[in-house]
């Protein structure tokens, strides 16, 4: 099972990313938990400078932008 975290303080881009990831998880049926991390102290543990950040199994995959749907699909199904 994959553990997906979206780091973001609640800006529109972060919400967009979360919605997209949830949609992809649903469509592909990947076994994964989606967690939204909004606490800034928690976010800073990942040592990132820009949000939103997509973390899959504690690994930072995309940061600072909203990923495209195909990107997310690829990351989740590989």
């Amino acid at each position: 099972m994959k553990n997906i975290k979206i780091l973001g303080t609640g800006c529109p881009k972060c919400k967009q990313t979360t919605a997209l990831v949830e949609q992809v998880v649903k469509e592909t049926g990947v076994d994964a938990t989606v967690e939204k991390v909004e606490d800034i102290m928690e976010i800073m543990k990942y040592n990132v400078l820009s949000t939103p950040v997509l973390v899959i199994d504690e690994e930072i995959t995309i940061k600072g932008r909203v990923p495209s749907k195909s990107e997310v699909t690829e990351l989740l199904t590989k």
Binding site: T9, I43, V48, S50, T51
Partner: peptide, 15 residues
């Protein structure tokens, strides 16, 4: 610059 990135940026810089 997205104002929502200002906090992580700030901390990242001073750190």
């Amino acid at each position: 610059f997205c104002s929502c990135s200002s906090v992580p940026l700030f901390i990242g810089f001073v750190r």
